Amino acid sequence: MAQLLGPAEIRGLAAELDVRPTKKLGQNFVHDPNTVRRIVELSGVRPGDAVLEVGPGLGSLTLGLLDAGARVSAVEIDPVLAARLPATVRERAPEGVLTVLERDALKLRAGELPEPPSTLVANLPYNVAVPVVLHLLAELPSLARALVMVQTEVADRMAAAPGGRIYGVPSVKLAWYGKVRKVAAVPRAVFWPVPNVDSALVEFERGAERAGDREAVFAVIDAAFAQRRKTLRAALAGWAGSAERAGAVVRAAGVDPGTRGEQITINEFAKIAESARLRPSV
């Protein structure tokens, strides 16, 4: 059984490495073993699963995943933390199977991993959480499931449904890949240093592969929310070439051109992109 890290161990490792957590890298280390066990349980990870972890830091969650029998590929951008993690695992989970990659997760490629991961489990830096998840879902079709810890405000946006004020680009683009839901709050006290924002766990389950051009659909989404208070006819004018063509394309997709982007689903955005492909001009 792995020996998980508590507050004393976290501070001891940080002192040993002369690590001063930086806001730039979003470094807030989990020091509560019960929280780690809860995250691993909610992730659904089972013995033998290939798991991708982004931002392992000092290794709190890594040890919990290894304790569950997962084979972990840990991607860490900080060279000092990346270099220390294998030793921490040897000391506390000697039977664990770990690969550490010193990489920027936003630039990670599938071929760099030892095997295709089925699950993403991560305490993500708040400032890049959504771009990282979207990049990994696009790059790693093997990812069937994810459980990520993010800022509560970000979690709400990721899981938002159409029609609400917080429904936007993260909500719609994630919906392209599957289902997202906010599953649990995480108290500030379990981190060191204590963040000045609340955190939450977000669960993702990949759906069936969609037909259509993802980049074309995402271009429609970006255009619609760049001016989210405008109707689709107006907001998509630049994308379509004119407000007239935007209105015709949207109408042909079965959507009211007077609707705003925050009111429609990923399926309707996909229909608009397909309508534009079929209607090169009006």
Rank of each mutant, 00 (worst) to 15 (best):
V183H: 02
A185L: 14
V186S: 04
P187H: 12
R188Y: 01
R188A: 14
R188V: 12
A189E: 13
A189S: 14
A189H: 14
V190Q: 06
F191V: 07
F191N: 04
W192R: 13
P193A: 07
P193F: 09
V194W: 02
V194N: 09
P195M: 00
N196D: 11
N196A: 12
V197F: 01
D198T: 11
D198I: 00
D198K: 14
A200I: 06
A200R: 02
L201H: 02
V202C: 06
V202Q: 07
E203L: 15
F204P: 02
E205V: 15
R206K: 04
R206F: 03
R206E: 03
G207N: 01
A208R: 15
E209K: 14
E209F: 01
R210K: 09
R210N: 06
R210S: 11
R210H: 01
A211R: 11
G212V: 11
G212C: 07
D213V: 09
D213G: 05
D213C: 06
R214L: 08
R214P: 00
E215S: 12
E215M: 06
E215H: 06
E215Q: 13
A216T: 07
A216L: 05
A216P: 03
V217T: 13
V217L: 12
F218L: 01
F218S: 00
F218D: 14
F218Y: 15
A219V: 10
A219R: 15
A219S: 15
A219H: 12
A219K: 10
V220A: 07
V220Q: 08
I221E: 00
I221R: 03
I221C: 03
D222Q: 12
A223S: 09
A223I: 03
A224D: 03
A224N: 04
F225P: 02
F225W: 04
A226W: 03
Q227A: 13
R228A: 06
R228K: 15
R228I: 03
R229V: 07
R229C: 07
T231V: 12
T231D: 08
T231H: 10
L232T: 11
L232P: 05
R233V: 01
A234M: 13
A234D: 15
A235N: 11
A235I: 11
L236Q: 06
